[in-house]
Amino acid sequence: MDPWTFWLGGSLALGGGLLTVTRKNAVASVLWLIVAFLGMSTLFLGMDAGFIGVLQILVYAGAIMILFLFVIMLLNLTPSGLLRMDRPRGTTLGLASAAAFIALIVAIVTGGQQWTGGQGGGSEAAILERTGEASMLEGSVLDIADQLFNAHLLPFEAASVLLLVAIVGAVALTKRKL
């Protein structure tokens, strides 16, 4: 857990996220969201979760975001129309909700020794001591594949069916005449 990957990735993800939800233009939001995803990917790589990190870039930043861009293009929304439509509302409510949630999580996390540094906690040394060899997670494709195709084969297959259903559903929803 290199501190600098955390601070770099964290600020990219958080900053990108903040800009995503505040931009008036949806295209700008998409681009900032890609920045946020890159930051997330950095964080994953910093936690030795290489597979997830790459997946983040390929699937999220690559595939899903391109889909968003296509849709925005398809919708053909003019900037003025967007401005008129997307006047943020309930900012105070939104802030209060988010703050309440964050405060709750922070209170839980920092309330005990479990996740923070110290004996039996969440520091590098403590994790290493507790999990031993297992902590040297390479996040290698081999380990994940072992998990996916042995222990979680059924959910894996179910996910593939889900994706198929989603494809069919998306086509059925957007087609003018079936």
């Binding site: 949630f101 922070v106 996390v109 923070t116």
Partner: peptide, 12 residues
């Protein structure tokens, strides 16, 4: 030092 709690707070 970066601990697990950092990540959780960030995720929140």
């Amino acid at each position: 030092e970066i601990t697990t709690s950092h990540y959780i707070v960030l995720s929140a």
